[in-house]
Amino acid sequence: MTVDLLNIDTPALILDETKMDANIARMRDKARSLGVTLRPHLKTSKCWEVAKRQLWTPQGPATVSTLKEAEEFALHGVKDMIYAVGIAPQKLPRVAALVRRGVDLKIILDSVEAARLVTQYCQKESLEIKVLIEIDCDGHRSGLTPDSAEIINVARALEAPARLVGVLTHAGGSYDVDTHEALLVRSRGERDGICRAAKKLRDAGYELSIVSVGSTPTALTDEDLTGVTELRAGVYVFFDLFQAGVGVCQISDIALSLLVTVIGHQMEKGWVITDGGWMALSRDRGTANQKIDQGYGLVCDVHGHLIDDLWVSGANQEHGIISARNGRKINPKDFPIGMRLRILPNHACPTGAQHPCYYVVNNSLEIKDCWKRFYGW
């Protein structure tokens, strides 16, 4: 029997390979046009079959957000990685184990205290660990501001065999805007901020080989990255409703969806009930703060074609509630029990995190493959 979307169990995570490949090509072409290296973030998929398509070479470069990712991708031969989350001291032995295996794993930090702890560990272990200082260009998250005097103090606290190799920033504030003009402002601010920080360090005598920027919205908006060496981005590989709301993709570009089955109706309320609750979709409601709230996701037929005016308006642990935005009651005869639907997610990363694998399709209902993903930190 052919395995397809009509006979696998649900809820199930569906990946449209054709759309994914187009998304990957778009970001790769963008980086080339800007004259910078693409260091894709592999956190979105946590899957080698996806990651190997994103990488420019089998060895990297790559970005990871957990040491579990670094360890898993190292098993597949990826060597050049940045662990782009501030280092916690107890994780240094895992970093060291990878470095001793020949993995060029770089870590980030943003304080004198962290720099001293890394220095002490490297000196104790007689091991070089490469470090980037995290810069905060838009007040979104962690990092030092580009003009902070503390940047030099952090650099001074990094003593051999620890080695400063660069600076890194993430334009997370780009997720708060939704026009090309506003994204350009964020993009230029990201570039200018990281370049000021790099100049400060170089003027103080430090050699930097990496000046790293990145977020999917700014990456796809960037017009000039003079002074930057590399671009990082991750969610572009699948895209999602949040990125569509920001304005960097179309809903038709979203490669990830959740396959669900209709399991009932609420006649008086005009609802359709599915087996795709928040345990399968995630609780992410990021679009609630955008111009268009997409609820828990948009509804498509089993072929992936958007059904106008329907959304997942509510979700319990294992129940998804589909309703019409305009308040009309959905005719249960149009959505009989057993019918298959696909839900486009608000945020691809947490939706993916709920599932052990991707069921891969390519312009048909037939499942061509099942790609495993991994979990953990």
Score class of each variant (00 low, 15 high):
residue 2 T to R: 15
residue 4 D to H: 11
residue 5 L to V: 02
residue 10 T to R: 07
residue 18 T to M: 14
residue 19 K to T: 02
residue 21 D to M: 13
residue 23 N to D: 08
residue 24 I to G: 05
residue 24 I to Y: 06
residue 27 M to H: 06
residue 28 R to I: 12
residue 31 A to F: 03
residue 39 R to L: 06
residue 43 K to L: 08
residue 43 K to N: 06
residue 43 K to V: 08
residue 45 S to W: 10
residue 45 S to F: 10
residue 47 C to G: 02
residue 51 A to E: 07
residue 51 A to T: 04
residue 51 A to D: 01
residue 51 A to L: 12
residue 52 K to G: 06
residue 56 W to Q: 15
residue 57 T to L: 14
residue 67 L to K: 00
residue 69 E to R: 08
residue 70 A to I: 04
residue 70 A to Y: 02
residue 72 E to F: 00
residue 78 V to E: 13
residue 79 K to V: 13
residue 81 M to F: 07
residue 83 Y to P: 01
residue 84 A to R: 13
residue 85 V to G: 09
residue 85 V to S: 12
residue 86 G to S: 14
residue 86 G to W: 00
residue 87 I to N: 04
residue 88 A to W: 08
residue 89 P to E: 14
residue 90 Q to E: 04
residue 93 P to M: 05
residue 102 G to L: 04
residue 105 L to S: 04
residue 106 K to E: 12
residue 110 D to F: 01
residue 113 E to C: 00
residue 115 A to P: 09
residue 116 R to V: 05
residue 117 L to A: 14
residue 117 L to N: 13
residue 117 L to V: 11
residue 119 T to C: 11
residue 120 Q to L: 11
residue 120 Q to Y: 08
residue 121 Y to E: 10
residue 125 E to S: 05
residue 126 S to E: 14
residue 131 V to C: 10
residue 132 L to W: 02
residue 132 L to H: 10
residue 134 E to G: 00
residue 134 E to T: 07
residue 136 D to E: 14
residue 136 D to L: 13
residue 137 C to E: 07
residue 138 D to P: 01
residue 143 G to A: 11
residue 147 D to M: 10
residue 148 S to A: 10
residue 148 S to T: 03
residue 150 E to Q: 11
residue 151 I to Y: 01
residue 152 I to S: 13
residue 158 L to H: 05
residue 158 L to E: 08
residue 160 A to L: 12
residue 166 G to A: 02
residue 169 T to D: 02
residue 171 A to C: 10
residue 178 D to H: 11
residue 183 L to A: 02
residue 183 L to W: 02
residue 184 L to W: 09
residue 186 R to N: 07
residue 188 R to N: 14
residue 188 R to Q: 15
residue 189 G to Q: 15
residue 193 G to L: 12
residue 193 G to V: 02
residue 193 G to P: 06
residue 196 R to N: 14
residue 196 R to P: 06
residue 197 A to R: 04
residue 199 K to R: 15
residue 210 I to E: 15
residue 211 V to K: 13
residue 220 L to I: 13
residue 220 L to E: 01
residue 221 T to P: 07
residue 221 T to A: 10
residue 225 L to H: 09
residue 228 V to P: 05
residue 229 T to D: 04
residue 230 E to Y: 12
residue 231 L to W: 08
residue 232 R to H: 15
residue 232 R to A: 05
residue 234 G to F: 06
residue 234 G to E: 12
residue 238 F to E: 09
residue 241 L to W: 00
residue 244 A to H: 07
residue 244 A to L: 11
residue 248 V to L: 11
residue 249 C to F: 02
residue 252 S to C: 01
residue 253 D to L: 03
residue 255 A to C: 07
residue 256 L to P: 05
residue 266 Q to I: 03
residue 266 Q to K: 11
residue 268 E to I: 14
residue 273 I to A: 01
residue 281 L to H: 08
residue 281 L to P: 05
residue 290 Q to R: 05
residue 292 I to S: 06
residue 299 V to I: 15
residue 302 V to C: 09
residue 302 V to M: 01
residue 303 H to K: 14
residue 304 G to F: 06
residue 306 L to C: 03
residue 307 I to M: 09
residue 323 S to E: 01
residue 326 N to K: 15
residue 332 P to A: 04
residue 332 P to W: 00
residue 332 P to I: 00
residue 332 P to D: 02
residue 335 F to K: 04
residue 339 M to K: 15
residue 343 I to K: 03
residue 351 T to W: 01
residue 356 P to I: 07
residue 358 Y to P: 06
residue 358 Y to V: 00
residue 358 Y to D: 04
residue 363 N to C: 11
residue 363 N to V: 10
residue 363 N to F: 08
residue 367 I to K: 12
residue 369 D to P: 03
